[in-house]
Nucleic acid binder design. Sequence first.
DNA 1: GTGAAAGCGCTAACAA
DNA 2: TTGTTAGCGCTTTCAC
Lengths: 335, 335
Amino acid sequence: MTITDVASHAQVSTTAVSKVLRNAYGVSPAMRDRVRAAIDELGYRPQAAARAMRGRTFTIGVLLPHIRNPFFPDIVDGMTEQVADAGYQVIMVQGGGATPTAERRAIEALVDRQVDGILMIAPLASRTQLEEVAATTPTVVLGRHERSAVYDSVLDDDEAGTELAVGHLIALGHRRIAHIAQKDGSRSRPAALLHAIRARTYERVMTEHGLADHIAVAATSYTEEGGHRGTRQLLAATPRPTAIFAGADMAAFGALAALHEAGLRVPADVSVAGYDNTSMAALAHISLTSVDQDGAIMGRTAGRLLLERVEGRASSVRFVVTPTLVPRASTAPPP
Amino acid sequence: MTITDVASHAQVSTTAVSKVLRNAYGVSPAMRDRVRAAIDELGYRPQAAARAMRGRTFTIGVLLPHIRNPFFPDIVDGMTEQVADAGYQVIMVQGGGATPTAERRAIEALVDRQVDGILMIAPLASRTQLEEVAATTPTVVLGRHERSAVYDSVLDDDEAGTELAVGHLIALGHRRIAHIAQKDGSRSRPAALLHAIRARTYERVMTEHGLADHIAVAATSYTEEGGHRGTRQLLAATPRPTAIFAGADMAAFGALAALHEAGLRVPADVSVAGYDNTSMAALAHISLTSVDQDGAIMGRTAGRLLLERVEGRASSVRFVVTPTLVPRASTAPPP
DNA sequence: GTGAAAGCGCTAACAA
DNA sequence: TTGTTAGCGCTTTCAC
């Protein structure tokens, strides 16, 4: 079933069929109807590979660090909603967590498949690497703060979010507030990554409140396991912290588990705050104080920006969402 | 940067380069080294689209209902681990939950992109539709119980798992045990889907224990929202159930939230059991009794089966994993 | 508005 | 073992 079959069935040229498929300029309504009818009758579907050889693939690639974080679906769904109407299909690849090599392979896989646009969620690669990709493929980077003239940026104001969370704990009366951060495996160590911003802002806010001596960071990862491991490290200190600000809800969940194992009550003994306000955080049994950022809007915006770039926009755009604090039962005044 | 560039740089034919790329038979070691060197020097990467026109894409497509269920990553990671060494890239598409049209589009997207193999996780499509796809593309279906001569099946013994969960609740002394099921949007309603099996087995076990009068099923969906809504429905009955068996952990989480809102304690007033034993279930604050199925093994097996099919196997294979019960604090004797 | 024909980058017959 | 060459199914000039 090829474009030639459709053409001969409709008694027209392949050019005509191709134009109808792409809604291109220069087809009479009569021609269009005839071709459409033939397509439906034969159940024809264009092969993406053949299209890719000359034109578009109508595919948007999304690079995710992994699919374990319940915050990512919000972004992906927003993106899908935005581009589906334009006939684009979203495909996802996993970057493999905190190893830059696995991530590079995943990005290359998308480039090799000639996707029309790429959304990278919190990529670890160096800015140079990202710009190399963006030079050939329309790219939106989500969750990094540096400015680029080559790709678009969609991000949360992580400084504001961190100020909200840490400020909330300080306002409750906490002084020994520890932080669980993500250690990036890259040697280039892009300081613009959201987890670096959150960690830096935590230290700044602590210092501004005269709490520099109480700064304690466990650099593990934004995963449940990372939160668990990080909390065990933090609890080894004497005196132990009275509050933990985890850079992501997933890590906060791990922290809750570790605290429970250590026989500590939340929030009576230790307060815990997270970031992302995932649906799990709202569960009554968890009731995690968290910083909310609107993933759906971020995804939709990223989709719109990609479509604009596919259509030819060359200037670069930066879109920032403002986070809010959602206080719940996991935070309270210190014992 | 094309295969021609590499060929001329290495002073050989494009055929030679192509053979080296595919590790095909009939290249001398000297030739191979020379081509490899040229490839590295030029940073050449083959275009998937051009390969797809003639041969393989080295791509495995995974169809997921969505990426919100923490059980799916286990499967996908197992699959990735298995096929990565053979040079295959895993791409994921979302089927769009419970609507068969969105799912069909997602499957078509994979077929259009000429992936070498497809793993479908709990697809809603009719068996006929699946077999049409499988006729052209090597296919493994995960989570459906019917037998097919055209595609391979990987599944959990959902009957055994359900017997474990419901049996556990009965052994604790419960009689009014309700169930949260998934309502499939398809008209063809494939009775072989895992959620249908779990619901049917629940009814069978209840009947076998003389509890047919206490059968109560809320057919919503295997999501947090579905569990929440289903539980509200179930609590409307008088007398209300003393235990809820949710067909998936995600739904159980929604049930926990709804019970909390209704002022009921778990497990003092109502016991809750789930299915999948996701990492969230193990969290101390949740401590959800759940049925464990080994997602990593299922994923790895699916990967192996796909590679075998790509290599030419035509007979069909069926792989069943045996679930186990993980009792936790969310289940206890009735009040 | 419509169609003929070239060519995208690969792979696989086939020839040497 | 190596190279020549004919396509795969589309899109896109460029005539008409």
